[in-house]
Design a protein around this nucleic acid. Structure first.
Lengths: 150, 150
DNA sequence: AAAAACTAGTTTAGGGGGTAAACGATAAAA
DNA sequence: TTTTATCGTTTACCCCCTAAACTAGTTTTT
């Protein structure tokens, strides 16, 4: 029993800590050279919830607001997002996706989806799929607990 | 069926692309402020296989040799590794752990192990453990396939 | 043996990621 | 009105990475 836990811990460590970014590295397409994972994630967040502010983005991505500020600057530069001043509060700005931005997300989604699906079809049996989903839900819930600590 | 695949793909994306690294963030200890994940991983690799060269490390960590060169410089600076010239080939240098380095690994291992085990004990039932291990093995094998592409 | 080709590591420029602290501008509370 | 709090930007300083140029040894070729 103890031995099993040890094995699980090691695997978890290898995959979740040192295995970072391996997925994206193997995709290796034009789009991922122009936009970083964090940038893509940000675009997706903006799409999901309209009228986001920097503050909220910092919360959602789990990083310091200055990191968001920098990222936004780059994305505005690349013409995928725009920022417009709020009427109510002159300090806050709402972030919005441009048409360019929409296209980027679509393309990225499609690429990722195809790639992952391809991986699955090669390595996961149909019968395992349900288990797989359950496990990932578990992992996801574990990770999100980490957030609450903050 | 198709729907299940879609769900699995989404989960995979969330966890394996945007969710990695959350683990370390939530540990938040002194050691992880002094050493980056990549640095710790490098120390572990050096411990595992004595007499490693920069080249081999680049291969193992899956990054460009210049990244390794820089990392090594920092680790030497921090007195956790040393480099000694090979006798056979004057160009190559063997990387070795210092006593300091050994201690760092030990501490890091212990911290990680305890933390992950704690996470598991809270979220994973004993009966699920075997499944969990199987799944992670699968994921690990999938990720390593990515390497071979290079 | 001398020239050419290759290989191990380092350096540098440039682009990501991040934090913390200081700062200007606006809002809200005292 | 004065003080305190908040939003977002900037700056200094870390780490990550790559590609290309460069040194200095090692092999091949001629």
């Amino acid at each position: 029993m103890q031995k099993q836990i040890g094995e699980a811990v090691e695997l978890f460590e290898e995959v979740m800590i040192y295995g970072q970014g391996k997925v994206l590295k193997s995709i290796n397409t034009e789009l991922w050279k122009k936009f970083s994972p964090e940038q893509i994630q940000m675009l997706k967040l903006i799409k999901k919830e309209e009228k986001l502010t920097s503050n909220q983005l910092a919360e959602l991505q789990g990083v310091h607001k200055s990191a968001i500020s920098n990222r936004l600057k780059k994305l505005v530069e690349k013409n995928v997002v725009t920022m417009l001043d709020s009427e109510e509060d002159q300090r806050t700005k709402y972030i919005e996706l441009t048409e360019e931005g929409e296209k980027v997300i679509q393309k990225s989604d499609q690429l990722l989806h195809d790639y992952i699906e391809h991986l699955f079809s090669e390595h996961i049996e149909e019968a395992e799929l349900a288990q797989f989903i359950e496990m990932f839900k578990k992992i996801k819930s574990i990770l999100q607990l980490g957030d609450e600590d903050k």
